[in-house]
């Protein structure tokens, strides 16, 4: 028995020693394990750790921003013991590239590769009330122009005003991560056919992932401002992959010549009344936008008929591929496709 205890203690010491010599990859894991959602961290006001702006904002961003990790004083009050644990304290690797008293280098802030702990509240309805045309935009500092929804006399040949959605939602330079969005209430009727369709970057729009689009109006005075982190950021189920675009129809190309001449809100009809995207249970572009149009109505009706006919004939379910990829085109037809 004594030998077993001795062996256990030796193993324990070896494990601790190994932990103090963590390689960088494990240090990164440790960094990713930092959670804002622990009971102790949730009790602390955001601004007691995060300073806005951080001292490095000029070099790091060019505009006043939270561009660095909080200082040691934010951690040491509760984690003093962790700072002096071993030759290479594990806590250092939360922010620092190497765990050493001289290892000043820190990981880039914020860590873009990691999943997010926070979702963002953006009331599209309020911003839509203020949005109109932008006369120009700068590329070095993001600027948003929210203007009078002008009742201006407009000639019929006026170019469409795109409500400035594009200030925040631009066509990405590269194809983003994407996946099919599937209604949980529906069941697949058959196995997915082989996938042969690959969307390009033009099919998508990106969304802001920095303060640049917000602080130019909300830095101070206009609430929520820079010190009110919780005014925009809400802890969510840890962690979620924020940079994956989920779409019902992966075949929709925003840059198609017949789409690019439409106002965004011609199709995104729900967005103008939405105060929080998390509350939007259905697609913000209702199927009616396409199915009642002269452009796609017939194709959609035909596919629905083909699906129904295949079911009636007890054949393998017809897969809808006009709008959908096979991963979603094999599911039951949702009620939205039948309603008005």
């Amino acid at each position: 028995m004594k030998n077993r205890i001795r062996l256990f203690l030796i193993a324990l010491v070896a494990a601790f020693s190994a932990a103090s010599l963590l390689p960088v990859t494990t240090a990164q894991k440790r960094r990713d394990n930092f959670s804002h959602a622990t009971a102790s961290h949730k009790k602390i006001d955001c601004s007691s750790c995060h300073k806005v702006p951080t001292a490095n904002w000029i070099q790091a961003r060019g505009f006043p921003d939270v561009a660095d990790y909080p200082g040691h004083d934010s951690c040491i009050q509760c984690h003093r013991n962790d700072f002096f644990r071993g030759n290479r304290p594990a806590i250092c690797s939360t922010c620092h590239v190497t765990s050493s008293p001289r290892g000043e280098a820190r990981f880039a802030f914020p860590v873009r590769s990691r999943s997010q702990e926070f979702s963002t509240i953006f009331p599209h309805d309020v911003h839509q009330n203020l949005i109109a045309s932008s006369k120009k935009s700068r590329s070095d500092v993001a600027v948003a122009h929210f203007v009078r929804a002008g009742f201006k006399a407009a000639a019929d040949d006026d170019k469409p005003q795109f409500n400035n959605c594009a200030i925040c939602h631009a066509t990405p330079a590269e194809v983003p991560k994407f996946e099919s969005r599937i209604l949980g209430s529906l069941q697949p009727l058959t196995d997915a056919a082989a996938e042969s369709f690959t969307p390009t970057a033009a099919f998508f729009k990106d969304a802001p992932n920095t303060h640049a689009s917000c602080f130019n109006c909300h830095y101070q005075n206009q609430k929520p401002n820079r010190t009110d982190c919780a005014g925009c950021h809400v802890l969510t189920k840890p962690y979620f992959e924020s940079n994956v675009i989920k779409r019902f129809s992966l075949k929709f190309n925003h840059q198609d010549k017949d789409h690019i001449n439409k106002d965004c809100t011609t199709c995104h009809v729900r967005i103008t009344q939405n105060a929080d995207l998390k509350t939007m249970m259905n697609a913000d572009v209702p199927i009616l936008t396409c199915s009642t149009s002269s452009c796609h109505g017939d194709n959609i009706k035909t596919e629905i008929s083909q699906r129904e006919a295949s079911i009636t004939a007890s054949q393998p379910a017809f897969q809808c591929t006009y709008c959908h990829t096979p991963s979603i085109g094999r599911f039951q037809i949702p009620p939205s496709h039948q309603s008005r």
Partner: peptide
Amino acid sequence: QFRGRTAVAQDWLTTNLPPNLVS
């Protein structure tokens, strides 16, 4: 406030305007 950064001072003009004139 923005340490002499003219671009920021100009582009973030509304953050230093009286709130009543802004919203």
